[in-house]
């Protein structure tokens, strides 16, 4: 999956400009960047929830906006930020709705639909909670239920927009570990938008940093997460240490950075 000179805009305001990015199959890639940098917008563009102003998004060489939406839904699972479900909807019913792209106008519930729904519930550890209404679950359980819905779609690619936001730290890790497991056990290609740089560094093979609608750094967490980048893009002074457990870099910000006159965001961290 890749973008070619993609520009995205809301009304007249251009958020993403001429961006080219290609997502490596089988990897967890994370988009990070300061508020308003366009990372969620980019994800929406990749998910065909936003039409490109210019350029295109390609999946296996074909422009996704030209593909029949149902066909695309078999390739690409998407979880937008903060989804809401109607009152009383059970986990079972929510997950079952992920089968939509595999159903026909008259064939609306096949034995295979039933099987895949169970499988998605099992892999997200939601079995005991399957018959519970969503509104009775904790934030982490609810998020897992939504991920299960996208899994029922049976897509090789999964796009997740800030799946851990508003969750307690324990639930955050639960969700991140699930994502890691999906990548490892099912070879799913996963693209995430994350707020937490350390989580991004810990769980992804590749980090892409956006600032003002452009890519300013792209590479392994170790290559991307540097003092200079944190100062220039996130405007913080930070120490970088290596987590002895996972070997991934961890940033420890300690004060806001005074912007230096010659730092203009892009600073040679491109791959």
């Amino acid at each position: 999956m890749e973008t070619k000179n993609l520009s995205l805009a809301y009304d007249r305001e251009t958020i993403i400009q001429q961006l080219s990015l290609s997502i490596v199959t089988g990897e967890i890639t994370t988009l990070v960047g300061p508020n308003g940098c366009g990372k969620s917008t980019l994800l929406r563009g990749l998910a065909r929830l936003l039409k490109p102003k210019a350029g295109e998004v390609l999946l296996d060489g074909k422009a996704i906006h030209a593909l029949p939406t149902k066909q695309l839904a078999k390739q690409l699972g998407i979880l937008p930020q903060g989804p809401t479900a109607p009152e009383g909807l059970t986990v079972y019913e929510l997950v079952a709705q992920g089968r939509y792209p595999h159903q026909g106008f008259f064939q609306q519930w096949s034995p295979e639909d039933e099987e895949t729904t169970r499988e998605a519930i099992a892999i997200t550890n939601m079995v005991e909670l399957a018959d519970r209404p969503l509104d009775t679950l904790s934030g982490g359980q609810r998020q897992r239920a939504w991920i299960a819905m996208t899994l029922a779609q049976k897509t090789p690619i999964l796009l997740l927009d800030e799946p851990t936001t508003f969750l307690d730290i324990g639930y955050q890790l639960e969700v991140m570990e699930l994502i890691e497991r999906l990548n490892r056990e099912r070879q799913m290609t996963i693209l995430l938008v994350l707020h937490d740089l350390n989580q991004a560094a810990r769980y992804s093979q590749r980090m892409v940093v956006l600032n003002q609608g452009r890519i300013v750094a792209d590479g392994t967490p170790g290559a991307v997460l540097t003092k200079e980048l944190l100062a220039n893009v996130f405007k913080v002074q930070a120490n970088i240490v290596i987590d002895p457990d996972s070997g991934s870099p961890v940033c420890l910000p300690y004060r806001t950075a005074v912007p230096t006159p010659h730092s203009n965001g892009a600073n040679g961290h491109k791959k």
Binding site: A47, T69, L72, P80, Q97, Y100, Q103, Q153
Partner: peptide, 20 residues
């Protein structure tokens, strides 16, 4: 009915699951 169920999850989800 299924399309109504998907509308109930919001336009974004409905789109990403393949509803026109």
């Amino acid at each position: 009915a299924r399309q109504l169920n998907l509308f109930n999850l919001g336009d974004d989800i409905a789109t990403s699951l393949g509803t026109r």
